[in-house]
Computed example of a mutant assay.
Amino acid sequence: MTRRPPPLVEDGVVVALALLDVWAHWDIDEPLRMACGLGAAVVLLLRRRLPLLTYVLTLPSVLLSDAVVASLAALYTLATLSRPGALLFLCVPAFAFSDTTSLPSPDFDLTETRKLIALGYSAATAAAAVFLGQLVRTRHDLSLRLTEISQARDHQQLLTAQAVLARERAELAREMHDVVSHQVSLIAVRAGALQVGARDAETKDAAATIRRLSVQTLDELRHMVGVLRASGGQPTELTPQPALDDIQRLADGCGIETELTMDLPEGLPATVQRAIYRTVQEALTNTRKHAPGATARIDVRHVDGAVRVRVTNTAPTQPPLPLPGAHHGLIGLRQRAELLGGTMTAGPTSDGGYEVCVMLPAHVTE
């Protein structure tokens, strides 16, 4: 699509053409006619704001001289800015009459063939300017209409996508409620029965941990199902959201021997606190899955204006458990850190262990 020149440039070109037309018909012996031609060229500067008045003020130039470019330009502008109507088409005979009449001594006789031909030629010239202006206006209106249609289509596609997403979320919520929640409930019940029936303290403690984690998972699932079912309504926050105070409880209940060190300022944003918690949670989960028997060290500090979360585990002492996994945990941690303006690195250590390190900006709020 070609870009139109700026309005100031267009006005300058039109005025220059009108002045060139006056110069082509210049006659030093007729100052009044030349003054009308020059005035009509200057009046064109008003054609965008006052198109009808501009056209009327250019007619004397056509009536008194042979300079017609200014009047045709004004008529074209009037046609581009006006809808079809009687007033617009009355401008055509007005131009034709002015062009075929000579003042101060008018010589207009419709019985002469020559006059009729000249009148028809002038009317056709004015009509061409009107039709061209109307064509430009129609093209502009059509462009606006196409833009509106495109916007409406995009909005409809967005609504359709939202409706599909809402159905998918509702279906996912049903599956989580009917399948996952049911199975986790069975785990909690069986763990409770094992806790009551077991005789040794170690088995009772393990069963209690399983039951507590199952109950906590059910609570989080219930909130997630509520969020999924609320799609299309008001935004719903996943509650309760973890914070720094929950990290100690997470370390104590993860089933791994851990060492926790935290040195952070007060007033960290909730998003940063949540990212710290999720980093520790994912690292401990990976240790439990891929490095059975290993110990973990959690170090959370404020370093050089940033929060550094480092979770390191030792080498496993038992073969890893064949647990299912989608391998999206570390990817999710990296994406979460990048969204907050931080970084994440992960890799094996020299002693056969593994380390996850996340750096997050520490925007402390008062």
Rank of each mutant, 00 (worst) to 15 (best):
Val69Glu: 06
Gly120Tyr: 08
Leu116Val: 15
Thr125Trp: 07
Val92Phe: 00
Tyr55Val: 00
Pro106Val: 10
Ser122Pro: 04
Ala124Ser: 14
Leu78Arg: 11
Asp109Ser: 09
Glu112Trp: 04
Phe95Met: 03
Phe95Val: 09
Asp29Asn: 14
Gln134Met: 13
Asp29Thr: 15
Leu87Ala: 14
Ala70Phe: 00
Leu135Arg: 13
Phe97Asn: 00
Gly133Met: 04
Ser82Asp: 12
Phe108Leu: 15
Leu116His: 08
Leu88Met: 12
Leu72Lys: 11
Arg139Trp: 11
Thr54Ser: 13
Arg47Leu: 04
Leu75Gln: 07
Ala124Asn: 05
Gly120His: 04
Ala94Met: 10
Ser71Gly: 07
Pro84Ile: 04
Tyr55Ile: 00
Leu32Val: 15
Arg137Cys: 07
Arg47His: 05
His140Phe: 07
Gly39Pro: 08
Arg137His: 09
Ala127Asn: 02
Phe95Gly: 03
Gly39Ala: 15
Pro106Tyr: 03
Leu135Gly: 13
Tyr121Trp: 13
Gly133Trp: 04
Ala129Trp: 01
Leu90Ile: 00
Arg83Cys: 05
Gln134Asp: 07
Gly133Phe: 03
Ala118Glu: 14
Asp107Tyr: 09
Lys115Thr: 15
Arg48Lys: 12
Leu45Glu: 05
Lys115Glu: 14
Arg139Gln: 14
Ala94Glu: 00
Ala74Tyr: 04
Thr100Ala: 08
Leu116Pro: 01
Val68Trp: 05
Ala35Leu: 15
Val136Asn: 06
Leu110Val: 12
Ala67Cys: 11
Ala73Lys: 10
Arg33Pro: 07
Ala126Met: 04
Leu50Phe: 11
Ala70Arg: 02
Leu142Asp: 14
Leu110His: 07
Cys91Asp: 01
Val68Gln: 09
Leu32Glu: 10
Pro104Trp: 05
Thr101His: 02
Met34Ile: 13
Ala94Ser: 12
Leu135Trp: 08
Gly133Asn: 04
Ala74Met: 08
Leu75Thr: 03
Leu44Gly: 04
Leu110Thr: 12
Thr113Lys: 13
Val69Met: 10
Leu119Pro: 04
Leu52His: 07
Leu57Ser: 08
Thr113Val: 14
Thr113Ile: 14
Leu88Val: 09
Pro60Asn: 08
Ala40Cys: 06
Ala79Cys: 10
Thr138Ala: 15
Ala40Val: 05
Leu90Lys: 03
Val43Ser: 02
Phe97Asp: 00
Ala79Trp: 06
Ser61Gly: 11
Ala123Trp: 02
Leu44Cys: 08
Thr54Leu: 06
Ser102Phe: 09
Cys91Thr: 09
Arg33Gly: 15
Leu45Cys: 05
Asp27Pro: 03
Thr101Tyr: 06
Val43Phe: 04
Val56His: 06
Pro104Arg: 06
Ala94Gln: 02
Ser65Leu: 10
Leu81Val: 06
Ala74Trp: 03
Leu75Tyr: 05
Leu90Ser: 13
Phe131Asp: 00
Ser105Tyr: 09
Thr111Pro: 02
Leu103Thr: 01
Arg33His: 12
Ser143Asp: 12
His25Arg: 15
Ser98Phe: 01
Leu87Phe: 11
Ala128Leu: 14
Leu44Ala: 08
Ser143Trp: 03
Cys91Pro: 02
Thr101Phe: 03
Gly120Pro: 00
Cys36Gln: 09
